[in-house]
Design a binder for these strands. Structure first.
Lengths: 214, 214
DNA sequence: GCCTGTGAAGCTATTCACAGCT
DNA sequence: AGCTGTGAATAGCTTCACAGGC
């Protein structure tokens, strides 16, 4: 219950539900949501138990009510802020993507060492020099940190974020972060994921060829 | 055996091993590698069974031999190529990051709709107009595709890549891709990951406060 | 009839624990 | 003594299957 996987899928369901809402769909069945999310219907129903089920037989789940219920679990009552460190191509992409999208979870401050990038406002987000990281994070009470700096800097930045009060990290640097056990780390390891995709692409390819022979 | 998790961790171990090699470390114990990778020693040993174990009691594993063994599983004998679609901030970041890093797995072609970006060479990679996607992928025999286009374009791009022969996708678009079952999809869902980090940050924070009271 | 909610079964992944080695 | 390799135990996750409801 409330496992990492579970929470991740609920986030996916919510995004899909917003899409359905836009299309004026009022009700959705578990198997419909399942095929949109590429999981089984049983999985959807099981996941939705985490938000306190609310489906009606025959019609399924009320889309807007379901969005609200998932929001009650995933969102804080008050908006929660995140800090982004490293305003390179990747950091800029994230700033652009998250700006104004989630009212309850926005990037409230960005940091970089490059003086040229600092003291500007990018995609509605103020940029600070990295020296002010710890204090700014503390002052703004940010609890989530996004690390988009080179691998060599990542560990030091993570430690500064944690000193500032951050309890959840989203790490894009190609390195493992060593932090206290009570800090949650989500790794976005592109090298690993690409190698995985390459490995399983090859395996599928072999399977396909074997099938053609038989 | 050779599960997704297993392959992912092997990729991580390999990167750590390269770091050890640079530091002139010849041998490594499972528990050393484990603490670098933030997993248990038993997990490391179990994972290494997938490459055919090769440790010696007392001294542990020979770093360079282990790198080679993992490479035999993860890499193809001939270099394997990937296609990247969508040369925005995110795509550029990936091109820059992967350029010249892995000799056995490189981005061999990039695609975009923007005529200004096309027919240039970025980070050693040639850029093509997206109309030439399917044919170029087929001609160059690329089996891995990286999707960094907006959500609205992602499904169409994925289908074109698969028609061109791609069997593994690395998807950065905030949407689920619906492809044949024999195509591997690895999702890099930033919204999901950020919401997950926010959720567990909050939970850790609550736990910490509870501890302080007791 | 066809849906949801859920106990129970089945499956996968991780950890334990110890034999075997040096 | 302290390591690896691995069967066995455990924990965690997903799917099955069906009772209950509209």
């Amino acid at each position: 219950m409330h496992s990492q996987r579970n929470i991740g899928r609920l986030s996916v369901y919510r995004r899909l539900l917003y899409g359905l809402l836009e299309a004026r769909t009022e009700y959705v069945h578990s198997h419909t949501l399942a095929s949109l999310a590429e999981v089984t219907a049983a999985q959807v129903r099981r996941d939705l138990m985490a938000v306190g089920c609310c489906g009606t037989p025959r019609r399924g789940y009320a889309v807007s009510f379901l969005i609200e219920s998932i929001g009650e679990l995933l969102d804080t009552p008050e908006p929660q802020g995140a800090a982004l460190v490293g305003i390179g191509n990747l950091g800029s992409a994230l700033l652009a993507y998250f700006s104004g999208r989630r009212p309850k979870l926005a990037i409230m401050a960005a940091f970089d060492i490059d003086p040229a990038k600092v003291n500007r406002v990018m995609h509605g987000c103020r940029c600070y020099p990295v020296e002010k990281l710890e204090n700014t994070v503390r002052k703004k009470d940010l609890r989530v940190g996004i690390v988009t700096v080179p691998a060599s800097e990542a560990q030091g930045i993570a430690e500064a974020l944690v000193r500032g009060g951050v309890r959840g990290l989203l790490n894009f640097a190609p390195t493992r972060l060593h932090v206290a056990r009570d800090v949650f780390v989500e790794d976005m390891d592109m090298t690993m994921s690409l190698e995985k995709a390459a490995f399983f692409a090859r395996r599928e390819d072999r399977k396909r060829k074997a099938r053609r022979v038989s």
